[in-house]
Design a protein around this nucleic acid. Structure first.
Length: 285
DNA sequence: CTAGGATCCTGTCAGC
DNA sequence: TGCTGACAGGATCCTA
């Protein structure tokens, strides 16, 4: 699912196309995907679209916001605007007729344009929240630093060091330690600094943790500049085109292929309950 | 408090 | 072909 760069890509797209639009109608196809009363947002105008970690926040007028999380398979697709646009989980719904069997919520705007919230596994959600209370939502309140803020590195170190006995992969995936990192960027940044994902925090030098933070931040920054790993320009997509993930990934989903640093075969293992990709030569415990 | 596992849900893919 | 289990770009809840 979408991680920070992909959610940021969604944010930018939604802001670009939806700013100023008024919600005419909301169609909830799956009850658990939309929390709150959709009547509370009818007629509201979209003022801003923000992101915090992997969460999306759509601010409407009248002090109301929509908070959303794409989780593993969520995606946002726009139809009826000046150009076709979609981002989030890379699935065929980018391309096909909508709604389809993954469509959970449809927003229609005055003018007839539509926003489709698609989510195959139904883990994602969109929730109506008073704007003033958004930051009080538990997981947002507890969320770790945004990687691109100046104080993020020190704050990350402070929070990570608390988990002395935990494995570094679990810690960097912990949203209360650092906002936005998911399975791809965890594996990629650990490979970049040559740290084995099962290494315990207490066994890592602080400087190594700092290097890891910078690697994660920089890899995500570059990914954002490419529109996230999962964006597909589906106007031109022919179904055979690769996405950015295939271009930049050094280890993720590359098991059995040569490490670009030492030519050793990448292997896949399980760490902290997640599929994990490493170079066994570059990344020793 | 931490850490590990089960869980939410649907679809796909590998291996019988 | 058909079944079964594992697994998935996430995060929470429960247990020990």
């Amino acid at each position: 699912m979408p991680e920070l760069p992909e959610v940021e890509t969604v944010r930018r797209g939604l802001l670009r196309f939806l700013k100023g639009k008024k919600i005419l109608e909301v169609d909830v196809l799956c009850d658990k995907s939309f929390l709150g009363e959709f009547s509370d947002i009818l007629g509201r105008q979209i003022l801003d679209v923000r992101r915090r970690g992997k969460a999306l926040i759509i601010d409407l007028d009248d002090g109301v916001s929509l908070v959303g999380h794409l989780k593993m398979t969520g995606q946002m697709v726009l139809r009826g605007f000046s150009e076709e646009w979609g981002a989030g989980h890379p699935a065929g719904s980018f391309l096909g007729q909508l709604p389809d069997n993954t469509t959970r919520v449809i927003f229609e705007f005055i003018g007839g344009e539509k926003l489709f919230f698609n989510d195959q596994r139904k883990f994602g959600w969109i929730k109506v929240v008073p704007t003033a209370e958004v930051s009080d939502i538990k997981f947002l309140h507890e969320m770790g630093p945004e990687p691109f803020e100046k104080t993020a590195e020190d704050e990350f170190i402070k929070r990570a060091m608390k988990h002395k006995g935990a494995m570094i992969k679990a810690v960097i995936l912990d949203q209360s330690v650092l906002a936005g990192v998911g399975n791809i960027y965890a594996d990629e940044s650990l490979w970049a600094v040559q740290v084995h994902p099962a290494t315990r925090i207490k066994d890592l030098e602080e400087e190594k943790l700092r290097e890891l933070f910078r690697a994660a931040r920089d890899i995500m920054q570059v990914s954002i500049e490419h529109g996230g790993s999962s964006i597909k320009n589906y106007v031109k997509a022919d179904g055979t085109k690769g996405d950015y993930l295939e271009k930049f990934a050094k280890v993720f989903r590359r098991e059995g292929r040569a490490c670009s640093r030492c030519a050793t075969d990448i292997v896949k293992l399980r760490v902290a309950g997640r599929g994990t990709h490493i170079c066994p030569k570059c990344q020793k415990v």
